[in-house]
Design a protein around this nucleic acid. Structure first.
Lengths: 198, 198
DNA sequence: TTAACTTTGTTAACACCGATAACTTTGGAG
DNA sequence: CTCCAAAGTTATCGGTGTTAACAAAGTTAA
């Protein structure tokens, strides 16, 4: 019967999927081009027709990660400023908890210097922008202090990013106390950032 | 004359030093046992007499990193609570900026699960404790809100850790604006954490 | 229709890597 | 002086990313 087709259906997509599966299960160091090629039933150099090297495959995986994160953040209800700010932070941390290995790939400096993968940088910016719009909105309605937006953003992003990493690396209590802790942490910053303290 | 001695002077120390040099210059993935052995002029398996595997060498490097960090944090003047809190944060971020690759090794989940290297966990705790004591002191003198210490710590550590990582990964403005940004970020949290909000 | 060309695969090979087994040299303790 | 444990050695296994040279399949146009 039909021997395995010389031309594969959609090799790039299947490679990406397998890389993502491996990452989620065993971390980014477990991603091996040769292993992926073998599992698909194709020779290793075939992958180089679609990814210039291993790192650009990792970049592609990270891009889908940023898209997921962006989509989750966009789903947060923006009606009430305080609710939006709190829950966008919670959602951010929840994403990191749900996808620790993916999150570590997206940040964590495993992919070489910024600027090397423009589409990756752009995907990151798109997720960042959701945070930024929420904070800007909080300022525009007078809920947050009218400090420079870059300063507010650096603070907010640092907090959620740090909280995410410390949580998934097991440096914080975690466990069932976790949601309450995240809410407490975010609330502490939020209360200190209000226009009218009290 | 004396041919190269069969027994090396202090192999573990020299390996550690070379691993550290490589890490600082090229990142943790560039650390290769074979390359280190070759540079020292010793066979690769010799290293296994002193380090059970590559990862435990990385753990050893990370341990010295935590010791450096702890020592830097301890040098912060603790006379005034506000000054201490601000400058311990600045010092923390400065360490990450001075040693980005080392910092990423210490955190960043490159070394397997917590509990695998007890001495590493302990070294991390010792650095953490300096932060904790400073925050506790800030509370005891009534400068900071009397919230649960774990909550205050999670918040403070998340902020400085997140700020450190985002900075060294180039996600924030950085450059010459950097010190002012770090100070602004820390001040924002600090003001929101005061017992008497002005 | 068939010739030319591009895309997408192939095999072979290079230069690395971590790790283990089996053996040898060395230094020190009894 | 003997024996043993510590700290080296060589040989080898299986794995990695990556490139070069070549072959097959699909596409386009004369």
């Amino acid at each position: 019967m039909s021997r395995p087709a010389y031309h594969h259906g959609d090799l790039p997509q299947e490679v990406l999927q397998l890389a993502l599966d491996t990452l989620r299960a065993e971390g980014d160091t477990a991603i091996s081009l040769r292993a992926i090629a073998k599992r698909i039933g194709v020779s290793a150099p075939a992958l180089y027709r679609h990814f210039t090297d291993r790192e650009s495959l990792l970049a592609e995986v990270a891009i889908t990660g940023f898209q997921w994160l962006r989509d989750r953040l966009r789903r947060v209800d923006q009606a009430d400023p305080r609710h939006a700010l709190l829950h966008i932070g919670l959602e951010y941390v929840a994403f990191a908890e749900d996808e620790p290995n993916l999150y570590r790939l997206m940040f964590g400096g495993r992919i070489l210097p910024r600027g090397a993968h423009p589409r990756l940088d752009q995907a990151g910016l798109e997720a960042f922008r959701v945070l930024e719009e929420t904070v800007a909105m909080g300022q525009s309605v007078g809920y947050l202090k009218p400090l420079p937006l870059p300063l507010m953003m650096a603070t907010a992003w640092s907090l959620v990013h740090g909280l995410s990493e410390l949580t998934i690396d097991g440096h914080l209590p975690g466990g069932d106390i976790e949601p309450a802790l995240a809410e407490g942490v975010l609330t502490l910053l939020l209360d200190g950032s209000r226009q009218q303290p009290q």
